[in-house]
Amino acid sequence: MALILNGDAELWAIVLLSLKVSIFAVLISALIGMPVGAALAVARFPGRRVLIVLMNALMGFPPVVVGLLVYLMLSRSGPLGVLELLYTPTAMIIAQVVLVTPIIAALTRQVVEMLAEEYSEQLRSLGVSRLASVPVLLWDARLALVTALLAGFGRAIAEVGAVIIVGGNINHVTRVMTTTIALETSKGNLALALALGAILIGIAVAVNAMVSTLSLQAEREGLRHA
């Protein structure tokens, strides 16, 4: 607790980097996942069900495997090796984007599909095409979608397997809360590990509290988070 209360510089640098990486990853995932999820909710084409099943399956993809695949892509001999991103925060953001995008896309699809069902006839009556209905549905599902973002953030900030593979846990460069906890515990430095653990739990509780509040509000607005 002393480490937290005394504002230990190293500890807070790790916390800040963790937040930066995960927030960036969630924002990028939202930019990809929300339109994809919404498009899957309103579009009708052959293979749509297969894509939905695949997207849902990707939600449970093992983080270490994602880390391995991103590592292979970014390593010197990989297709993106020339970018020299391995062992940088950018590589960690990429890995988290791969993990979080399916979550946001799948939750968006569920929420938007439910709303689209309700709005369908009304929007068609008002002359709104399927494509034009996407921004309308995304905006009207905004409360439920914020909970999807928070769920994605929860997954990103608590993730360890993928970021340790592509980030390398380099001090002052790619060391985030989860990887530091793993390292410091193995070294026997339980004080730092526990301090970071407490902060991580605090973040998890805060995120869940926000999800609950927003879900309740969304339910009151008539759109329950699926």
Binding site: Y119, E121, S125, L126, G127, D140, L143
Partner: peptide, 17 residues
């Protein structure tokens, strides 16, 4: 023609706004 028509449903479908 459809653009010059409007419809009101049994259960009003109002935007969440």
């Amino acid at each position: 023609h459809k653009a010059r028509q409007a419809m009101v449903f049994q259960q009003p479908v109002l935007l969440r706004r």
